[in-house]
């Protein structure tokens, strides 16, 4: 696991180096700033997505959850005038609830994860339209959200000046979203590697039957995994709403693709039970670096779509290769040695 992370970090460094040499203005403070502000929420989504994948599932609905939570925030703030400090926990709760519902469908109705979450993708997106404040009160379409608790998420820290480095080099300003991402990373990483729940996640994904026989409440573990994915989607939604000071019905559309790609690139195995938080987070920034680099090199956005797809394919291909090797290693050194 550690070596895979190291390989990814190396690949990330190589990518940065390559673009720094080839793309004009890539090696600059503004690129770092763009990367931090534009991909921190992607990293959060990817870390969330890792949980369903760790328990051998997948969540296609996280983009729709982002949209739903965004619209809930919009309505609460602009229509119901709920104060921001109440909106934050409500939004997180809504995201976790939507995620947990996915888990319930998977566990209790025994639906295939991808089909269950594809269905909830439609349902959550539909719900977003249904509660859309933009349609209920058309006058609000152009009204920005001004609640300081919400817009405060879109804050930048001039870390360079605090540290006194600005006098030497041009330092990027660090967005609060990046700090949030670090906090989410820290919490989830600790949850995953240092708690009983984390062990239960790995056990459930690694060998469902063994986990059940060991007395682990696998159903609860799976539902919680999906709830965490929803919670992360809600955090991402808050960051995005703060950025745009509004929410649209299409907020987050297609984000699941990027999140899955980042998670798989980050070494979270689709076979379940393998992966951690560092990989998905770095995977998201790797995707971001590639996209920003390509843009600076003048590659049109549509080509980037192709490249994103190709990277996803390459990542699952690599994942598959690793698991085939694992199986070989598992079956090779057994008996017949005598």
């Amino acid at each position: 696991m550690r070596s895979a992370s190291a390989a990814l970090a190396l690949f990330f460094a190589a990518t940065i180096l390559l673009f720094s040499l080839s793309a004009p203005r890539f090696a600059s403070a503004s690129t770092v700033e763009n990367l931090m502000s534009g991909f921190s929420f992607v990293a959060i989504l990817a870390m969330g997505q890792a949980f369903p994948i760790l328990v051998r599932g997948i969540d296609l609905s996280i983009g729709a959850i982002v949209g739903l939570v965004g619209m809930i925030v919009f309505d609460l703030s602009l229509i119901l005038h709920v104060p921001g400090y109440l909106i934050l926990p409500l939004a997180l709760f809504a995201g976790a609830l939507a995620g947990a519902l996915n888990g319930v469908l998977v566990v209790h109705l025994r639906l295939q994860p991808f089909i269950a979450t594809l269905a909830t993708l439609a349902a959550y997106r539909g719900l977003t339209y249904a509660i859309s404040g933009r349609q209920l009160v058309p006058g609000l379409t152009t009204t920005p959200i001004r609640d300081p608790w919400l817009t405060g998420i879109e804050t930048y820290f001039d870390v360079g000046r605090w540290l006194g480095l600005s006098r030497l080099v041009n330092m990027p300003w660090v967005p609060l979203s990046f700090v949030i991402m670090l906090a989410v990373f820290a919490v989830l990483q600790v949850l995953l590697t240092s708690t009983r729940f984390g062990r239960d996640i790995y056990a459930t994904g690694g060998n469902h039957e063994a986990a059940r026989l060991a007395g682990i409440r696998v159903n609860g573990v799976i539902i919680t995994a999906y709830a965490l994915a929803g919670l992360c989607a809600a955090i991402a939604a808050l960051i995005m709403v703060a950025r745009f000071t509004t929410a649209t019905e299409a907020l987050g559309a297609g984000m699941e693709l990027t999140a899955i790609a980042a998670a798989v690139i980050g070494g979270v195995s689709l076979a379940g039970g393998v992966g951690a938080m560092f990989g998905p987070a770095l995977g998201a920034f790797l995707l971001g670096a590639i996209l920003i680099g390509l843009t600076l090199q003048g590659v049109p956005q549509f080509v980037q779509q192709i490249i994103t797809g190709a990277i996803l394919l390459a990542a699952v291909g690599y994942d598959r290769l690793l698991s085939v090797r694992r199986q070989r290693r598992l079956s090779a050194p057994s008996t017949a040695a005598t």
């Binding site: 696991m1 062990r199 790995y202 056990a203 994904g205 690694g206 060998n207 039957e209 063994a210 986990a211 026989l213 060991a214 195995s269 039970g273 393998v274 694992r326 598992l330």
Partner: peptide, 8 residues
């Protein structure tokens, strides 16, 4: 049959 989680 094995009842272990191979990646742990």
């Amino acid at each position: 049959h094995s009842n272990l989680a191979p990646a742990m």
